[in-house]
Nucleic acid binder design. Structure first.
Length: 216
DNA sequence: ACATTAATTGTGT
DNA sequence: ACACAATTAATGT
């Protein structure tokens, strides 16, 4: 399938002016990729910035051990904030981008990105919005990761305590737990309540009973 | 047994 | 993080 100016207009008509659409059409490189296709890997130099037409792409961050964390998905008419920021000062990619499904996109050359930023206000807005959207996504991811970590640390602490006293019931207040975990009493209370809901623990005043001892 | 008080825990902002 | 409500344990009368 080929890209034509009409379908561009259908997608971006109410967002970009006609001049910009023409430039997009002229300089943008249309491509279709299958699920699993690697669009970008860490260390790769970024020569183009993708703008999605359909499908979705997942953006992953690999740590030093090769473990990968999902940062966010690109979908709709999204572009990639990472490639935008990388290409503006010609840095290498710090992320991996893999097509999540069959995906159609336009790859825009780096020099055009910069040129259009000064030339078209709608493009500036688009770039700005892209950053904003991604930033919100990332905030959510940070919350999740931070919460998950604390969750684990709390369970770990409870397990150690139960080993110490050789039984699954011990007397301790939420505040003391908070001190040991370097967090606030309220957070511990809320975390424990979650654990109680999923049946990992039973709570009462000054007392915590560790259930499901099987899974230790 | 009842009232008072302090400590612990729950919740909303 | 803070402020406040609600609950529970401890103590005195």
């Amino acid at each position: 399938m080929k890209l034509d100016i009409q379908s561009l207009h259908e997608r971006f008509g109410n967002m970009f002016e006609i001049e910009l659409l023409k430039e997009l059409f002229e300089y943008g490189n249309y491509m279709e990729v299958e699920e699993g296709f690697t669009l970008m890997r860490p260390g790769g130099y970024i020569r183009t910035v993708p703008i999605l037409l359909s499908g979705s792409v997942k953006i992953l961050r690999a740590d030093s051990e090769g473990r990968e964390a999902l940062l966010y998905y690109l979908g709709g008419m999204d572009s990639c904030a990472m490639s935008l920021s990388c290409c503006l000062d010609r840095r290498q990619s710090e992320i991996t981008a893999i097509a999540n499904e069959k995906t159609k996109l336009i790859a825009v050359p780096v020099d055009k990105i910069e040129e259009w930023i000064t030339k078209y206000s709608t493009w500036r807005q688009f770039v700005f919005m892209t950053y904003q959207k991604r930033f919100e996504d990332l905030l959510g991811v940070i919350d999740q990761i931070a919460f998950q970590k604390l969750d684990d640390r709390l369970l770990g602490l409870l397990n150690r305590k139960s080993k110490q006293c050789g039984c699954s019931v011990f007397n301790i207040t939420h505040e003391e737990l908070g001190n040991e975990l370097a967090t606030s009493r309220e957070v511990v209370s809320r975390l424990l309540k979650q654990l109680e809901r999923i049946g990992k623990v039973r709570l009462s005043r000054n007392k915590i009973e560790l259930l499901d001892t099987a899974k230790l």
